[in-house]
Amino acid sequence: MTFKTLDDLTDLSGKTALVRVDFNVPVEDGKITDDTRLRVALPTIERLQKLGAKVALLAHFDRPKGKVVPEMSLKFVAPALSELLGVTVAFADDCVGKDAADVLKLVPQGGVALLENVRFHAGEEKNDPEFAAELAKLGDLYVNDAFSAAHRAHASTEGVAKLLPAYAGESMRRELDALNAALGQPERPVIGIVGGSKVSTKLDLLKNLVGKLDALAIGGGMANTFLFAQGVDVGGSLCEKDLKDTALEILAEAEAKGCKILLPVDVVVATEFKVNAAHRTFMTGTPLSDQDKIFDAGPRSAENLKKEIAASRTLIWNGPLGVFELPPFDAATVDVAKFAASQTKSAKLVAVAGGGDTVAALNHAGVIEDMSFVSTAGGAFLEWMEGKELPGVRALEN
C-alpha cells in the first residue's frame, strides 16, 4: 500500500489542514492523567504549522453516541495542548457549521484550533456523507494521524478522506512503516508471541498469523487451552475446554503451513492469586489438583523462547506470557521482554509490539523504549494483525 505523507507537501500558506487525531485521553477529576496521545500528535501539528497551515484538529472523546454530552466535551484538552505546543490553541464549540468556521477565521496561519467532539453528531459513527461533507468544508486538505481510530469507517476517519486530498500524519506513517516491517515485508525468520487469557478473543489473529510466521509462541491463559487439547493436565487453571477442537485445528494448520508452535514446557503453579503467593514449577504433563492453577510459563519455557528469538530477525508481540500484574507471575514475560530488547538494541532484531496488556507488560519490564516500535492503538493494531482491512488506512491509499 502506498499513501501520501507530509513529505509530499510544501507551502501551505493560506490553507487549512483538517487533522484527525486521537485525544481520547484518560481523565480523573477533570485532569488528564496521561498525555501520551497529545504528545504523539505534536510532530504532525508542528510540521503543518511550519508549512504555514492553519491546523484544525478533529477528535473524539468517550462515547456520547451522537448526542451533546457536556461532560464529554473536548474543551479541557485545549489548555493542555496549548502548554505542550507553546501556543494558544483555540477551541470551537462545534466541529462543523458556523461555530467551527468562525473560530477558524480568527486563527492565524500557523495557528491551531481544536474542534468539539465529532461524536456529538450521529453522522460521525454512521459515516454519513452529508456530515463528512460538512467537515470537509472546513479544510483544504485532510491528514489522518489517528491509527488507533483507523479500524472504524467513520466520517472523520474515512468519509472526509474521500473529499479532500488525504495524507498520513507523522504518527500514522511511523505506525504503518512499523507494521509493514513486522508482517508486510519482514526480515525472516519471523516469530510471534501471542498471549492473553482466552483463545476465543484471538481466533482470527491466530488463524492469520500461522500462515505468515515462521514460529508462534502462545502464552498466558490461552496456552492452557492448547495444552489441554493435547491431553495435558491443567488442573483448575483458566481453560476454554470447549475450544479443544478449534485449538487442534489451529495446530494442524500451523504444521501444514510450516509455522512452528511454541507452547510452555514448564509452568508456574499456585493455589491462590496474590502477590508473592506460594508457588511451584512443574513440567507440563505433571498431574495437577483442581486447586492448582497455572499463572505463568516456567523458566525452561522462557529459555526456549529466547533461543527462538535469537534465531529470528523479526518479532511481533501481542499479549503477556503470564499474569504479569502480580509477582512472581511476571517472571517469564519480564525475562523474555528484556532479552528481546537486548537483541533489538544490538540491531539483531526488529521488535514490534502492541495491545493494551502488551504495552503495560513491556512498561513493567522497563523495556518499552528499547523495542523497535510499540503501538498503543489497541483495537486497530489487533485488527491489522488479524489481516483485516482498516478503512481509515485504506482511505489514504494512492
Rank of each mutant, 00 (worst) to 15 (best):
A178E: 01
L179V: 04
K54N: 00
H364S: 15
D214W: 06
E386T: 12
E240K: 08
A133V: 08
R394D: 15
F131W: 02
D7Q: 08
A302G: 06
D7V: 00
V374N: 11
S197V: 15
P108Y: 06
L227N: 11
L183C: 03
K306T: 09
G66V: 11
P108K: 13
G355F: 10
D330V: 00
A351D: 11
S73D: 03
R173E: 15
P70H: 09
P320N: 09
S237K: 04
S148E: 06
R37F: 05
R280F: 05
A252C: 06
S301D: 06
I309A: 07
L251W: 01
G192W: 00
R280W: 04
A153P: 10
Q109H: 03
Q291Y: 09
Y142N: 00
K126T: 12
I193D: 05
V55N: 02
K126S: 08
A136C: 06
Y167G: 14
A365E: 03
A168V: 07
V334I: 10
V275T: 04
G319T: 01
K260Q: 05
L42G: 10
L209W: 04
P299I: 10
H60N: 09
P129W: 01
G123R: 01
K137F: 07
C95G: 07
P264N: 10
D145I: 14
K15S: 00
V27A: 07
G356E: 04
Q230K: 15
K65G: 08
A341S: 12
L42I: 15
G211T: 10
H151D: 02
T376Y: 05
G387V: 05
V323K: 02
V87T: 13
F282A: 07
P264L: 11
L176N: 02
L262A: 01
L176K: 01
V393I: 13
E249M: 08
G322F: 04
E46W: 07
F147D: 09
A53E: 08
A217M: 06
L262Q: 11
V350G: 01
T33A: 08
V190C: 08
K388P: 03
R174V: 01
A254G: 12
A92T: 14
G235A: 08
V194T: 07
A310M: 05
L263P: 13
L227W: 14
M385Q: 10
E46M: 14
E187W: 03
L176S: 00
E116M: 12
D35G: 01
R300F: 04
V68M: 07
A254N: 09
H364V: 09
E130I: 13
A310G: 03
L206G: 03
A377V: 11
V96S: 04
V268L: 05
S73I: 02
D102R: 04
L57D: 06
A347P: 05
